[in-house]
Structure formats: structure tokens, C-alpha cells
Design a protein around this nucleic acid. Structure first.
Lengths: 332, 332
DNA sequence: TTGAAAGCGGTACCAT
DNA sequence: ATGGTACCGCTTTCAA
């Protein structure tokens, strides 16, 4: 049932294991004729070198572990694509682990990977981890395994980081809404527990601080939807900034139900993937975080650290862009 | 820079390697006091057993490889979730590889994984593989590594399979459209090259064969969109069955542009994820393939084979469901 | 040009 | 209760 080994080949050809090994690695020490014989037998018996043995021997796995909280999230799946594309240019492989926003699973995966399975880890931590603010599983390993955090990061962990300019992106988007004449802008979010959510909320607060008190609606998707439904008229809200796909779609549904989105009575800036944003009626203005570039940058940074571990720790910030669509194209 | 080893611990504590190993594995052979000493030192120096060494020694990796053509595809990402949930109940880990529909990458990944990195593989092959109809990389390994194919399968490979009832699902959906009074039903697809696409096309053809000639529009998304735009009126089409998300959305855009979807002049049954289908205006009727269940079933099947390799090869078929929404709720 | 042997980091059998 | 040793599959140094 198992793959054939050097030892077995060596028995069959009646030469030593080392000769087989060298022949297959095309060493100059071995005669052409022997190489031929060995290669032929190897092909015939479908010999494949055992990665586990090679890894153990070499002390490296040529593998990068990627730990993500979710892959249904459009930003993270784009980031993953960026990482893959970049890593594919090298001889490194990738192991992907998905924590489903669970702290426990995250700790398990970090443990499992840092036991020699990977040479480095790229991680966006889970929501639960950010709520608990417990990063011991990462601070512990950062001395032994090269670590890079992206998107959801923590100052507690000393490592390379790739982040999005969340604060400025929302600050600017809200200012843009004000410039368009919006007077009372509310914020909706289901990711208020995340570091990135808090940065975005700060951006919102700073943008509106000379205009009105913050109107902030947070919670699970259904709760946000219910609250919005009640508050939009009572609070006289004429624009909403939604910080994630769930909040954006909840806002969208309420706006449709009240028939205030098509008319432009309510403006909306959200976060969501391109496909869904463009197919909504009206199409949704979004803040695009350039996930693929974030992923690519993360991979580049980590790969360069694997080549030179002495370099200074880096923090790279990728700017977001505002993609204007129909939910912001009518005057208020 | 590396993790501490048993050997190093044994030097520090001045006991043999075997004693350390046994102590850490809580063997009854070791005295309580020694266990204490060893455990303490292990904790202090953050000892973690090297997976690679354990795998080499034990001859198994306790890992299942999952090879997918894409993860942005909603069905596949749901299937992945199902696999993860099921595998998480065991002590197996998962390695996820994404081929981006490339044959070459698929071969590479299969090679990389079957070198001892995983004990078994769950795969949905790439589009390119299905076009080339080259499954040698899978037939070769199936003797050594446990293999399970799902969704996109091939008779050339002898292994466990989990499939969707693609033929019947489309057959029934089209009959349903006919029952609703639709007279000229066209088919749109970008996945006509896939085994599942061909089964679905067959279902369509059989459903309409007593009614009219097949009207089949295939190609890349943009091409499908352009063709539809031209043909809908000229061919007098009053309903469309779209076989994948891209074709479904292309159809949707054309229908919106011509303003024939809201009125019910054109009916549409598509394939797409729940979120986007429900948020479209009008919301889209879809065929749901129960991806999560497909994934769960695949994992169950493979895990049971890992326990008992002698059992017969199985083929399980998961039925799809028609989720009726607004694109099919008006009379023609 | 070929082969013997050590070693990667563990486990487990057999002595002591 | 503890230690010695062989072994998993491969690479690599050194000797022949």
C-alpha cells in the first residue's frame, strides 16, 4: 500500500542506498549507466521521495501556513488569492487553515503548524481572539516561526504586519457623504468587536464630530436590521455607512423595504464584494480594500523575511478605495 | 531559532532520551518525581514534539488533503465547510490546496501531497483537467493514497465518489418552468466543459425534447451576455435556465436591461449562492446543491475508508433542491 | 564510482 | 524505574 523507498530500490538493483539517492539527484559522482538503471527502475516503480523524511532531514518544510478566520468573507478570500499567486512563484507550498472565527481552533492550528509542518505563518486572527485579546499563542511562537499578521492585527505581537487604512478610509468616505449634502449619517456594523471595526468606527466618529452626535448601530445582522428599521425615521437618518457585508446588506434590505434607497432619500456606503455590489438594485457604493494586493504584499514580506531574518520588522499599510455606485449618486 | 528537542532536554536534565519521551507520554514506567521534573522543563523551554518526526516514525500524517479548483465558487466553499466540520470531529487535520482551475497546478498538488504529507485526498478536479480528460495523476495514486472525488468526477478513476444529481435537477427545473406555462426555454452556461455542466445540459435537452429545439448559449460570461442580448427577442425566449453563477448573473443583467424580468416576461432559474440570489431585485430562483452536505458526506465516506480499506467503492448522490423566488413567480 | 555510517527527532522494544 | 538501541526514509560526509 505504500510508496516504494530507496531501500527497496537499492535491494532490487543491488546497489547501495546512497548510490540510489545520488543517482536520482543527478550527482556527478555516479556513472551514467548506473543513473540510467536507477532512473528507469524509479520510474517503473513510481518512486516518489518521501517529503516527511526530506523535511525532517533538512529541518525545513518549504511550506507556509495560512490561517484565516473565514473564507466566505470576500476580502479574506481575495487576500488568499493574492498570497497563493505570490507563493506560487517560489518553491514553497501553502497549507490553509480556517478557524471559523474560533479562538480555540486558532490555537490548535497554530500549535499544529509550528511543530515543524511549516516554516512560516500568515494569519488574520479570529473574531474571538480579538474579543479575548489573548495573543499568547502567537507571541510564544514568534521567536521560532516567522509570523506575519494581516488585517486584524495586535500591537501585543511583535512581527511583520500588513494592514488596511481602515481609519482613513471610513473618515474619507463619511466626509464624502457630508460633501454630498448628507446631514445625519449613521453607522452600522456587525464587526464592531474587531480591531479593524474599531478603527473604522473611530474614523466615522472623527468625521462627524463637528456635525452631530454619533448614531451607531451594532450587533448581529438581524439585530442591526431591526434597529435600523426602527431608527431611520425617528433619528432622521439620511445616510448610512456600513462596515461589513452583513451590515451593508441588512441596511440595503431596510432601505429597499422602506423604498428610500432608489429615490436617494437614503445614501449608503458599504463593504462588500464587487459582484454583489454591482448586481444590487440600486448598485451599492463600497469601500474596496484591495484584498488581493493585501495578500500579495503579505506573502512578499514574509518570503523576503525567510530569506533574511535579520531585517527590521515592517508594517505596511494598503490604502482602500471608494467605488461610487448608485446608492450615493442621487442628491439628498 | 528552532524548537527544543528531546535530546536537548535529556542533556539538560541528565536523563536519557527514552526517559524524557516516556515521561512526556505519561508512561507508567516512569517515576512521578521524574515526570514532574521533565514536564516542568518541557514547559519552561516550550517543548513541542516535532510532527515531522512523528509522522515519519508512524508512517502516517493524520492529515487529509483537500484539492479544490476554486474557493470563490459558493458551492465549493460550502462543500469545504462541510468537510472541515466533519473532519474536525476526528484527530485528522486538513490541508487545503486551490488549483484555480489549472491542470498543471492540480498535478503538482497531487504529487506534493501524496509524498507522505497526507493519508488521503478529497478532490474536485479543475476545469482544465476535465477538458483534457487526463486523469493519470489520479489513477496512479489511487492505489497508494485513499482518494475521493466529488462533484466533478470521472469514470476513469476507481475511487469513492460523491456527486450531485445534476441531470435530474435540471430536468425537473425545466419541467417546472414548462408547467408554469413557459414555451421556449433557453439554456445559458459557462461551465459547459465540466462533467456536471454536460449532465445538466442533458437534463435540459431531455426536458424540452417534445417541445422545441434546444437553444443553448455557452461561452465565457461576457460572450453569454452578448449572445443572450441578441437572441432573447429574435428567438422568442420566455425562460432561461442558467447552469452556473456567472451565466445566471449574465442572464440577470440582460433581463434587467431589457426590463423583462420584473414583469415576468422572462423567467429565470439559475445557480448561485443564497445571499446574492435573495438580494437581487427580483430575487432569483435557484437550484441549490446542498454543498455543505456534499462536503460532509465526502468526509464521512473517506474517514470510514481510512478505518476500513477493504470495503467496496461507493458512489453517493446528493439531491439538489429548487428554491423558488421572484424570477419564477409571475405567469408568463 | 560506490558504499558505509551518522543523523534529523521522535517511538518502542529490550536490557538492566 | 531508567537507559540503550534500532528504526522511519532520506541526505551527506567520508572512506574505500
Amino acid at each position: 500500500m505504500k510508496n516504494i523507498t530507496l531501500k527497496e530500490l537499492s535491494k532490487m538493483l543491488d546497489v547501495s542506498i546512497s548510490t540510489i539517492s545520488k543517482a536520482l539527484n543527478d550527482s556527478h559522482e555516479i556513472s551514467i549507466s548506473t543513473k540510467e538503471r536507477v532512473r528507469e527502475a524509479a520510474k517503473q516503480y513510481n518512486y516518489k521521495p518521501n517529503r516527511t523524511a526530506i523535511n525532517l532531514k533538512s529541518g525545513r518544510a518549504s511550506t507556509i501556513g495560512v490561517i484565516l478566520p473565514s473564507i466566505k468573507n470576500f476580502f479574506l478570500s481575495r487576500a488568499l488569492r493574492g498570497i497563493e499567486n505570490e507563493v506560487a512563484k517560489t518553491d514553497y507550498n501553502i497549507i490553509i487553515c480556517v478557524t471559523n472565527e474560533s479562538y480555540k481552533k486558532e490555537v490548535q492550528y497554530v500549535q499544529a503548524l509550528t511543530n515543524g509542518l511549516v516554516d512560516a505563518i500568515i494569519i488574520a486572527v479570529s473574531e474571538e481572539t480579538q474579543v479575548l485579546e489573548n495573543y499568547d499563542h502567537l507571541t510564544n511562537i514568534s521567536k521560532y516561526t516567522n509570523l506575519l499578521m494581516f488585517d486584524r492585527v495586535s500591537d501585543d505581537v511583535k512581527c511583520d504586519k500588513v494592514m488596511v487604512n481602515d481609519y482613513e478610509a471610513v473618515l474619507n468616505a463619511v466626509k464624502e457623504l457630508q460633501f454630498m449634502g448628507r446631514k445625519r449619517i449613521a453607522l452600522a456594523a456587525t464587526i464592531h468587536n474587531l480591531s479593524v471595526g474599531q478603527l473604522r468606527i473611530k474614523g466615522y466618529e472623527d468625521a462627524i464630530k463637528d456635525s452631530h452626535e454619533p448614531i451607531i448601530i451594532t450587533g448581529p445582522e438581524k439585530r442591526v436590521e431591526k434597529e435600523l428599521d426602527k431608527m431611520i425615521e425617528s433619528e432622521d437618518i439620511d445616510a448610512i455607512i456600513a462596515l461589513d457585508e452583513e451590515a451593508s446588506l441588512a441596511t440595503f434590505r431596510v432601505g429597499k423595504k422602506k423604498d428610500i434607497l432608489d429615490s436617494g432619500k437614503l445614501a449608503l456606503v458599504g463593504y462588500a464584494g464587487r459582484t454583489i455590489s454591482e448586481h444590487l438594485t440600486p448598485s451599492m457604493t463600497t469601500i474596496n480594500q484591495h484584498g488581493k494586493r493585501v495578500g500579495r504584499t503579505a506573502a512578499e514580506l514574509l518570503l523576503s523575511r525567510l530569506e533574511n531574518n535579520d531585517k527590521e520588522i515592517e508594517k505596511v499599510i494598503i490604502d482602500s478605495s471608494l467605488y461610487k455606485r448608485e446608492t450615493t449618486n442621487k442628491p439628498s
